[in-house]
Structures are given as structure tokens and as C-alpha cells.
Computed example of a mutant assay.
Amino acid sequence: MRPRAGQTGHPGEPDEPGHTLAFVESPVQLLNVLEWAHVHGQGDADARTHAPAGADLTVVVLAPTDPMTRGQLRRMADLARDEGHRVCWEEARGGTTAPFHTIGGLAGRLRRAGRVVMGDPFSRYVQLLLTITRARDLVVVDDGTATMEFVAQLAHGERLVRWHRKGGRPGPRDLLFAPVSAAARRRLTPAGGRRVEVFSSMPVNRAPDGVTLTANDFAWTRARFGPPRITKGADLVGTSLVETGVVDDGAYLDAVRTLAQTHGATRYFAHRRESTDKLHRLAGRTGLEIVRPDLPLELIARRGPIGRTVLSFPSTVVHTLPLALTGTGVRVAVCDIDPAWLTRTASPRAHGFLSSVTGTARDVHRLATVAPA
């Protein structure tokens, strides 16, 4: 019997070299694994009945501790099972010994797997697992805008580091983990018959030699959900730029208030990483209804109801929502980040990277930076 989401277990796995293991740590990563499987014909379920078909993909959830992320992951895990895929939920961060237990339990299957799919090549957990696998096929699916940075770093042979941390001095843990990170980067470089695919909805136009780029147009999402009911008003999408230390808290709240007033937004779809305290203050200052989605926003928007205009700051959704909402008439509008909003500790590359996120977005309406109300 397969363990349900929230349980730990190692269901029996086939040892065929064609078997695929996917490692995810966020709901969006799991969504994009389902999109990848749909494109590659793994677990094609009947669009009307969702009857499971195919079972050569096992999704391993390396569960985080954040309650909001865990809740969305449980919902996504159920959707993956509905598609006929195995799901193994690992309490990978459930105490000091959890990583050793998780890696030890996965080592055998990692060595047997013919293909490994990962949602976050920057994850130390995933990088460690990459040192174990013998898979000849490696696939990176989107973990948002970080995919753009990953491909650029891989192409230039740079160390793998998240964009909002780049430019800072490596800490002791970074230095200790550097050999593992370097080994993971080598594994993700095609060589000796090893194939690497990047499955992305991001504007990744230049790939390293030998890396295959496959476009993610959210075909599975559009086939399974919607079309949505469209409301007359506007909705606003939140970001975790404050939580990651990029944007000043007060500047962000002022910008949200001005944007909501200017465009008549009534709902604020919170990012799963946004703090409860910040959201409480945001609601009091703006009057917006705070919505905590139980699924990735692409699915929420596709199910509806959704505003005729969706407002966002630079983030992954300015690339993904136009694809998920193709043909619905919904307009996605993005507001630039004013350099004055950045914190003193923000990476020197932060503003340039955020501008590139906005500038490369397709099928969106670009708004001028808002002035404080």
C-alpha cells in the first residue's frame, strides 16, 4: 500500500534502468514534474476521469518544515497520485538524524534509477543526492526564476549559488559544502554519454553545450483545470522578496498599497513564504483580502475565480501565469522594483536580476514603478 502524503515510507520500486526518480521540495517543483511527465507521456491519465495510467515515475518529497509549504505539497502529492505516479513522502528535515536516514533509505534506488528529475539544483540536499546517483539522464524542472540563474552559472562553469545570495562572501557552511556543490555541478554537465535536460517556462534561450531545453507551456494544468470564471476586478500576487532580505519591509507595504489603490485590487494572493506578521500589517494598511492559496497560483488562477487583471512584482508568475491562462482574456501586469526599495544587505546583482525577470517576460503588461501613496 502506498503511503499517503505526510507519511514516510519506501514503497517497492522497480529496478529497471528506465525508472525515474523525481526529488521535490516545493509545490511548484512538484507541479512542474507533473508538467514534465505529461509532455514526456509518463502517467498519461484520462483527462475526463483522471484514471491512473503508467507507473514508472516515483516522486520523492523532501518535506520542508514550513506549514504552508507542507500543506500545498500534500495537495500536490494527491494530484500526482491521481495521475498514476508513486509518491514517497520523506520527513527529510525532521531532526538531526533525519538527513542520514533519508539519504540512506534512498541510496539504493538512486543507484538503480535510469533518470533523476530535480526541482532545485541549488538545494544542498539535491546536490548531495547527485553524488550518489549513476543515472545517465538528469532533468532539471523549474523552481521559478532561479532556473535562469542556474543555466547561466552552468554555462559559465560558476559555482551554484542562488541569485539573491550572489555577491556575498561564502560562509563556513558554504566552504564546507563546496566540494559537494562542485561535484553536483560536474554531474549536471553533459559528458561521457550523460544527458541533461532543462524543462522550463522561463526565458532560457542559451543553454550550455549538450544541454537539451524543453519548453513548459503548462499543458497539463490547462487540460486538468478551467477555464476559470473571470471577475471584473484586479488581484495582486505577493512575493517573498522581504523574507529573502532583498526588499525593505516598509517600502514593500507602501508599494502594495499604492498598486492596489491605483488599479482597484481587492485580493492579495500571499506567497507561501510570506510571514504572518507581515500579512497582518499589510491587510491593516491596504484593506486587501489576504488569500492563502492551498495550491500553486497557476492552478488557483486556472480554477478561478480570478480577476480580469493580475498584478505582480517581478517573480516567477509573470512568466507562468500568461501560459496557464492562455486564451482566458486575463491580463497579467508587472510592476518594476524601485532600487530605493532594496535593503542594504541585498545582493549587488539583485536589481539587475529582477529587472531581467520583468524585461524577459512575454505577454505581460509592464507598469511603471509605483510611487508611495
Results as ranks from 00 to 15, higher is better:
4 R>K: 08
6 G>M: 07
7 Q>S: 14
8 T>Y: 10
8 T>L: 11
14 P>A: 13
17 P>R: 12
19 H>V: 13
19 H>Q: 09
20 T>H: 01
20 T>S: 09
21 L>C: 05
25 E>K: 08
26 S>E: 13
28 V>H: 13
28 V>Y: 15
28 V>Q: 13
30 L>V: 12
31 L>I: 10
36 W>I: 09
37 A>K: 03
37 A>M: 04
38 H>F: 13
43 G>V: 09
45 A>R: 02
52 P>K: 11
54 G>K: 01
57 L>I: 09
59 V>D: 02
61 V>E: 02
65 T>N: 07
69 T>Y: 06
69 T>M: 10
71 G>P: 02
73 L>I: 10
74 R>V: 14
77 A>N: 01
78 D>C: 12
79 L>A: 14
80 A>C: 08
82 D>M: 12
83 E>V: 01
90 E>S: 08
92 A>C: 03
94 G>M: 07
95 G>K: 03
96 T>W: 09
100 F>C: 10
103 I>Y: 06
106 L>N: 04
106 L>S: 04
109 R>W: 00
111 R>K: 09
114 G>F: 01
134 R>H: 13
134 R>V: 02
138 L>M: 01
138 L>H: 02
141 V>P: 06
142 D>G: 11
144 G>C: 08
148 M>Y: 03
148 M>N: 05
150 F>T: 12
151 V>S: 02
155 A>M: 06
160 L>H: 07
161 V>H: 05
166 K>E: 07
167 G>C: 09
167 G>K: 00
178 A>Y: 07
178 A>M: 12
179 P>N: 12
181 S>Q: 12
184 A>K: 03
189 T>W: 07
191 A>K: 11
191 A>R: 15
194 R>I: 08
197 E>T: 15
197 E>Y: 01
199 F>I: 11
200 S>R: 10
202 M>R: 03
205 N>Y: 11
206 R>M: 08
209 D>T: 13
216 N>P: 07
218 F>R: 10
218 F>K: 03
219 A>S: 12
222 R>Q: 05
227 P>K: 10
229 R>P: 12
231 T>S: 15
233 G>E: 15
234 A>K: 03
237 V>C: 09
239 T>L: 04
239 T>K: 03
242 V>H: 02
244 T>Y: 07
244 T>S: 10
245 G>C: 05
257 R>C: 12
259 L>R: 05
261 Q>K: 12
264 G>N: 13
266 T>R: 15
269 F>T: 09
273 R>F: 07
273 R>T: 09
275 S>I: 07
276 T>I: 11
278 K>R: 15
279 L>R: 12
280 H>V: 10
282 L>T: 05
287 G>D: 03
295 L>F: 03
296 P>N: 11
299 L>T: 06
301 A>G: 09
302 R>H: 01
303 R>T: 04
305 P>C: 13
308 R>P: 07
308 R>V: 13
309 T>A: 09
309 T>F: 00
316 T>W: 00
317 V>N: 03
319 H>T: 05
319 H>A: 04
321 L>Y: 00
324 A>C: 08
324 A>D: 05
324 A>G: 06
325 L>M: 09
330 V>H: 02
334 V>K: 00
334 V>Q: 00
338 D>S: 10
347 S>G: 05
349 R>L: 07
349 R>M: 10
350 A>F: 00
350 A>H: 00
352 G>M: 04
353 F>P: 01
354 L>T: 01
356 S>M: 13
364 V>S: 08
365 H>V: 15
366 R>V: 03
369 T>A: 15
370 V>C: 08
372 P>V: 13
372 P>Q: 08
